[in-house]
């Protein structure tokens, strides 16, 4: 060991300068929560695939019916059950209506129902859960007892019941879905608000010297918004699914207007007689969209989880 130490030149034995020391400290660039989450999200190939799929579906939902020369409800009996062709890309259904036009019109309906349901759930959930969590104590106790009872009610049955009574329309479907759907969101918001309250003492103790807005930006919002965003992403596909299910039972959008569910329901008989395209396209794009939302939601869940942050 001695000889090796001898190889070290003598001039290295002098005190270091302060700035040399500082330069020697290697520290990784610290990313803000959102850019870190974003970075992790775009590294998740499956989530990116989901995002890409969603862009496709949204794009076609907007422009599909516009570029198509056919009307959604226009029947053309002589042209019934045309297989996919140059004129009718997705073929025609039992009334000669263009399946391509109807599929993308249906996409508008499905996406609208999904997004509206998620938005309304979010608003009610924020208000209800926010009040419960913020007030705490008895108010919280009572409000959460109510939620617990509502949570036990099988919501699709209630939705069916509501739709049987009310006139079926887009609005009634959205109302019926949100009457019971907000409960899950309220629970999550309440839990997150309780967390924020715990942070209050952090705020108080740090108010001397530390930048408050920094704490809110770096700790509070990331830790509380993550689960809410994930819940939102997962509400959309379940609302789309519920709409399809209800339309399938004959309680959704009524013919001649189209939603993916009504189209699938209408073409049940057709598929056995070999007219596969009438079912295939709406069914495929329901699954496609659900898949996209689900993998995106999974990706967000992983990306926004503060526990996984190192």
């Amino acid at each position: 060991m001695k000889p090796e130490n001898k190889q070290v030149p003598n001039e290295w034995f002098r005190w270091t300068e302060k700035d040399v020391k500082a330069a020697e400290v290697v520290s990784r660039p610290s990313l803000s929560y959102w850019s870190d989450a974003w970075y992790r999200l775009i590294k998740n190939k499956l989530a990116m695939l989901g995002m890409f799929f969603l862009v496709i579906v949204v794009f076609l939902a907007i422009f599909g019916p516009i570029i198509s020369p056919y009307e959604v409800t226009k029947m053309d009996q002589p042209n019934q059950f045309h297989p996919p062709s140059k004129d009718h890309w997705f073929g025609t259904d039992q009334h000669g209506r263009d399946v391509f036009t109807r599929t993308w019109y249906g996409a508008r309906v499905s996406l609208f129902v999904g997004l509206m349901a998620a938005l309304i759930d979010f608003c009610i959930g924020i208000i209800y859960g926010g009040i419960a969590g913020y007030k705490g104590g008895r108010v919280d106790n009572i409000m959460m007892r109510i939620v617990e009872v509502l949570y036990g009610i099988p919501y699709l049955l209630v939705v069916i019941l509501l739709l049987v009574i009310m006139e079926p329309s887009l609005t009634t479907i959205i109302i019926a879905l949100t009457v019971t759907g907000w409960v899950g969101m309220a629970r999550i918001v309440r839990g997150q608000v309780l967390q924020i309250k715990n942070y209050e003492f952090v705020l108080a103790s740090k108010s001397f010297g530390t930048n408050t807005s920094r704490i809110i930006r770096r700790n509070l919002i990331p830790n509380t918004m993550g689960p809410i965003i994930v819940q939102l992403t997962l509400t959309v596909p379940s609302a789309i699914f519920a709409e399809a299910f209800l339309s399938f039972l004959g309680l959704g959008i009524q013919s001649p207007y189209a939603s993916w569910g009504t189209m699938a329901s209408d073409s049940l008989g057709a598929i056995l007689s070999g007219h596969w395209w009438t079912l295939f396209f709406p069914a495929f794009f329901i699954s496609f969209t659900m898949f996209a939302f689900n993998v995106l939601g999974d990706g967000l869940q992983d990306a926004l989880d503060p526990k996984l942050r190192k």
Binding site: W12, F13, R14, W15, K21
Partner: peptide, 9 residues
Amino acid sequence: MAMEVCLRK
């Protein structure tokens, strides 16, 4: 007590 050598080897 850091010296030049400490950073190098």
